[in-house]
Design a protein around this nucleic acid. Structure first.
Lengths: 335, 335
DNA sequence: TTGTAGGCGTTATCAG
DNA sequence: CTGATAACGCCTACAA
């Protein structure tokens, strides 16, 4: 026997079985399908489990059953509520169904995601959550070959990899332009992070502004993810281009907060000279002074639906390939 | 043969071996210890892997090698930079060493953590990161029995479960009191979330205030995790108790920002009538107007050191049982 | 440097 | 309801 047995303390299913006077398979049933075991057998087995301190080995179980009971979730970052909210509910819902979620942080960049997906497939996830809807063809093939159910969130596409729960960022940007237009604005500005979804929001905004015959007085690209200071610096940068009344769309609430903060410092009246709309409905949009207008997307709900669809799919049910969740403009003091 | 073979498409190591004309073990070596394989054999094997689209099965590998190459990290939440920063660097460092990190979100509560640890042990992690240093005796025994290396972060203890990389919250609170005292303050207030570490910071602060003969004019417990609005409401609540010059310590930068925001609204001059110090050195402390004084702990560094120690330990090296990382007060406009 | 033998701990499957 | 048997796909250990 090998030196592995140094750690001889590890209790395995056969030990429990012996202690309870049953076959290993019965112990397995007590753990996984207790309804198929008689009450007192189950009781005896549970006592043995407790007494020996048995911790089942899901690695072995997974190899045998070909189900890892693990779902991989890949998001750019969890440092933003944008992604931490859906991840949280996604994890909760799946947890209750007996799945663990393995989180992968891809950063903002194609390469990171590709490598991560490849790496995580190595653990044979039973399902997968991906952020965004544009993935390399290599990845899509990989996922298809692996036969892993996939939910994409936070974006939309006419050709989802598999299932999708998201919304249209360009449409959202357009809605913000409409909102400003309805308030009589004719001069617009937009500050957007360089990631693909922020870019889509900006493009939707700009397109609609043009359709309304509006004038785009300033447009800047910020790093992704962008923060408060990026918003402040950007406003300082474009302050000279502002007309007597400009409507600004920021790609996140952090950016919008930075803009408002800097506007106050520069003596630019919000919303009189500068109307501001953010994105995300983060805590700060609601709790800072003044609270500011933003676009809310229910990330938590997105996570829940994504989890529910994945579960349904794994149960063999048919699931809609695309679910669009609503966004709505939350009107507060800044616009 | 069973119906499992329905999914006959799955390429396994034997398929690659056959295609490359070598033994399975050689393929394994090409993947895990390429330096032990001749260059051209390796080349041939890699081509076969590529051609067949082979994705190694870590579940099988893990069962066989008794190494999951997975590290479990358990933190209360990832919605706060307090924890997302160390998690990020921890994940990065371990990722480069070939480990995946499985993140568990325990919330603020003992039960959540206990259950999570139990659940995750089921996957036989090679190591584990825990937040805080006080865990139930049951959990400590479980971890010891499992023989899993454990690093605790974000707190300190005389009796770490295994390894620890953290700091002393009470001492930190004391340092803030000293800082205020050195500025001549005699009236103090403290707002602290109800989690154990925020409570420790508060206690350290209060104790030192007393030692300095200071007067504690207000003290409130906030929900955990606490946000901007909690800070605003708390300030409104205690505004009447404030003297002509009070020094307030908030348990997080969110709370401190809320306090400052509300102070401005109420016409309480910061720092003249109300000096404020937060905790965390979050982006907002630096980027809001005015930027405010806070205590910085290098969470990213903590994550890096935790990862490095875990790796060293898994390599069999001896690792210090306790590493304390420094904190420092960042003096800005609010105090 | 490469190969062979056997087992890692669990569960699917089929029989009783 | 319970048990016996044979995989699951890979890697450790040892041999060549």
């Amino acid at each position: 026997m090998s030196s592995r047995s140094i750690n001889s303390a590890t209790v395995k299913i056969t030990d429990v079985a012996a202690a309870a006077g049953v076959a290993p398979m019965t112990v397995s049933r007590v753990i996984n399908t207790p309804e198929r075991v008689s009450a007192d057998t189950a009781q005896r087995v549970r006592e043995a489990i407790e007494r020996l301190g048995y911790v089942p080995n899901l690695i072995a179980g997974g190899l045998s059953s070909r189900r890892s009971r693990m779902i991989a979730a890949i998001v750019p970052t969890v440092a933003s509520p944008m992604f931490s909210a859906p991840v949280q509910t996604f994890t909760d819902v799946l947890g209750e169904a007996g799945y663990h979620v393995m989180l992968g942080l891809s950063g903002y960049g194609q390469d990171g995601e590709d490598a991560l997906i490849r790496a995580v497939l190595t653990r044979r996830p039973d399902g997968m959550l991906l952020t965004g809807a544009s993935h390399s063809e290599a990845v899509r093939r990989l996922l298809r070959d692996a036969g892993v159910p996939v939910v994409e969130i936070w974006d939309t596409s006419d050709t989802p990899t598999d299932m999708l729960v998201g919304f249209d960022h360009a449409e959202l940007g357009g809605a913000v332009a409409d909102y400003f237009h309805a308030q009589g604005h004719t001069d617009f500005a937009v500050l957007a992070a360089s990631d693909p979804r922020a870019a889509a929001r900006r493009e939707g905004f700009v397109r609609r502004v043009r359709q309304h015959g509006g004038h785009l007085v300033a447009e800047r690209t910020l790093p992704a993810p962008s923060g408060i200071m990026d918003g402040r610096l950007a406003l300082r940068d474009i302050a000279g281009d502002l007309g007597p009344r400009t409507a600004l769309f920021g790609s996140s609430d952090n950016v919008a907060f930075g803009v408002i903060t800097e506007a106050m410092r520069l003596g630019i009246a919000v919303p009189q000279r500068l109307a501001v709309c953010g994105f995300g409905d983060f805590e700060i949009s609601r709790s800072s002074e003044p609270p500011f207008t933003t676009v809310s997307v229910d990330g938590a709900e997105m996570g829940r639906v994504a989890a529910a669809n994945l579960l349904a799919r794994m149960r063999g049910a048919t699931v809609p390939h695309r679910v669009l969740v609503p966004f709505r403009i939350i009107c507060r003091a800044s616009a």
